[in-house]
Write a protein that binds this DNA or RNA. Sequence first.
DNA 1: GTTTATGCAAATTCTTTGCAATACT
DNA 2: AGTATTGCAAAGAATTTGCATAAAC
Lengths: 139, 139
Amino acid sequence: MVQNPTKILKDHQLRITSCRKEVLRTFIEKKSALSHSDLEDILKEAFDRVTIYRTLKTFLETDLIHKVLDDSGATKYALCTHGHKGTHSHDHEHVHFKCESCGRTICIDEVSLPKIKLPDGYVNKEVNLLVTGICSQCS
Amino acid sequence: MVQNPTKILKDHQLRITSCRKEVLRTFIEKKSALSHSDLEDILKEAFDRVTIYRTLKTFLETDLIHKVLDDSGATKYALCTHGHKGTHSHDHEHVHFKCESCGRTICIDEVSLPKIKLPDGYVNKEVNLLVTGICSQCS
DNA sequence: GTTTATGCAAATTCTTTGCAATACT
DNA sequence: AGTATTGCAAAGAATTTGCATAAAC
C-alpha cells in the first residue's frame, strides 16, 4: 500500500506539484472520502478552488481516486488504494459506510461485497454498496 | 400499491395542487428514478423550475419520495411505493440498477438486498446498493 | 377568510472555461 | 527550452430565498 504522495504521482506518470501532493496527503491523512468542498476548506489558503477541481479531475482520469456514492448529493472521492494506472482494478467495488453522526464516509475492507445475480438481460459491470448508520467512533 | 396522485397526496396530508399531481403522475408513468432536471424537461411548459424544486423538497420531507444513489453526481428521486407518512418503512432498501447506455435508474425488485454484517461498534441503519451495467432493453 | 403554494426576480453556490503567468521535467 | 499546471476572471449551471399573487381548504 503506497502512502507516499510523490511516489504515487510518479507511478501514475503525473507531474509532481505541491497542490497534487497536498491533496494526496490530505486523503491519506483523513482516511475517508472527501468532497471538493472538504478539500477546499482544508486547502483554500494554499490553493485556488479551481486548481482543486482540476486536480480531482486529473486524479479521476488516471484512476488515482474514484467517486464514492453519497446520499447527500455531494460527490465524494477516495483514493484507489491498490490500483495502478490502466488496470481498472475494480478497487472501488467494496462497501462504503457513511456515519450519520460525524458525516464521514469510509471504506469497510472487512466486509466483502456480495455477488448480485441480476434478472436475464441485465449485464452487471459494477457494484456499489453504501451502508448508512453510526460509526464505531460515534456510537 | 397506490397509483393515484390525488389519493397519494391526501394520504400524506398535502394540499392537492396541479404541480404535485403532475410530478407524481410523471414518476408513476416513467417507472424510474428521476432527477430535478428530468422533471424540468418534462414539465417546464407547465410549471416553474423553482416550484419543482420545492415540490421535491416537500415530497422528501413527507417520505413520499426518497433519494436514489447515482454515480454521476446528479441527485435522483423515486417514489416510496408502499410507505406512508411516518412509517419510515425502509422502502428504499433495495437494489437499484443504472444503465450506462440509456441512463435510466430502476429498482430491481427481483433481487433482495444481502444482509451486511459490519465490524463491532458500527450500527447499520440503511443499506443502499447500486449496480451499474446494461439493462435488458439496451443489451 | 385563513393558510399554503406558486411564479418571478434575484441571490448563492457549484462547476467549468479561457488565457496569461508560473512551475515542472 | 518546451510542455503542463496554476491562478485569476468570468461564464454557465444548479439550487435557494424573498415577496407579492393566486390557489386550496
